[in-house]
Computed example of a mutant assay.
Amino acid sequence: MGNALWDRLSVEAQAEVDGLISAGRNVQAIAVIRESAGLPAPGLHECVDLVDQRFTRVRRGSASSR
């Protein structure tokens, strides 16, 4: 994906974040990012930006699978 914060997350955390975003649970996705990224903990704005980027990818992926 080319995002340093995304790259800090484990594969499991990435899957969980994408699942939460897909379910419309963005606040919970941000919590998972902040808990899973390690130290230094990412800021809220950085997490929101990542959720926005992932939302676009998750939505694009689900549209192509229809």
Results as ranks from 00 to 15, higher is better:
22 S>Q: 01
3 N>I: 04
10 S>K: 01
12 E>H: 10
38 G>M: 07
12 E>R: 14
34 R>V: 08
7 D>G: 12
17 V>M: 02
41 A>Q: 15
15 A>L: 11
26 N>C: 09
19 G>W: 05
5 L>V: 09
17 V>P: 01
20 L>E: 09
16 E>Y: 06
34 R>C: 04
36 S>Q: 12
18 D>G: 01
15 A>Q: 11
46 E>R: 13
38 G>H: 09
4 A>P: 12
1 M>K: 00
12 E>N: 14
1 M>H: 01
26 N>P: 02
31 A>Q: 14
40 P>K: 08
8 R>Q: 02
27 V>C: 00
16 E>C: 05
17 V>W: 07
27 V>W: 04
17 V>T: 02
22 S>F: 02
16 E>A: 14
33 I>T: 03
46 E>W: 04
11 V>P: 11
32 V>Y: 10
45 H>N: 14
24 G>K: 00
8 R>H: 06
10 S>E: 05
12 E>T: 13
2 G>H: 01
20 L>Y: 08
24 G>N: 02
30 I>G: 11
8 R>L: 06
28 Q>H: 07
42 P>M: 06
41 A>E: 14
23 A>S: 15
30 I>R: 14
17 V>D: 03
17 V>S: 09
4 A>T: 12
36 S>Y: 05
16 E>L: 01
14 Q>D: 10
27 V>T: 13
22 S>Y: 09
39 L>Q: 14
30 I>L: 00
37 A>C: 09
25 R>I: 00
43 G>A: 10
36 S>P: 02
41 A>F: 06
10 S>W: 09
21 I>F: 10
6 W>T: 04
45 H>A: 13
10 S>D: 12
34 R>A: 07
40 P>N: 06
34 R>K: 15
8 R>T: 08
14 Q>P: 07
5 L>F: 04
28 Q>G: 02
28 Q>V: 02
22 S>A: 15
14 Q>H: 09
31 A>V: 13
30 I>C: 03
35 E>M: 09
27 V>A: 14
32 V>D: 07
44 L>G: 08
13 A>H: 09
23 A>C: 04
8 R>N: 10
34 R>P: 04
25 R>P: 01
23 A>V: 00
40 P>Q: 11
6 W>G: 03
8 R>E: 06
33 I>Y: 04
21 I>H: 05
31 A>H: 13
37 A>N: 05
7 D>L: 11
32 V>Q: 03
38 G>Y: 00
33 I>G: 06
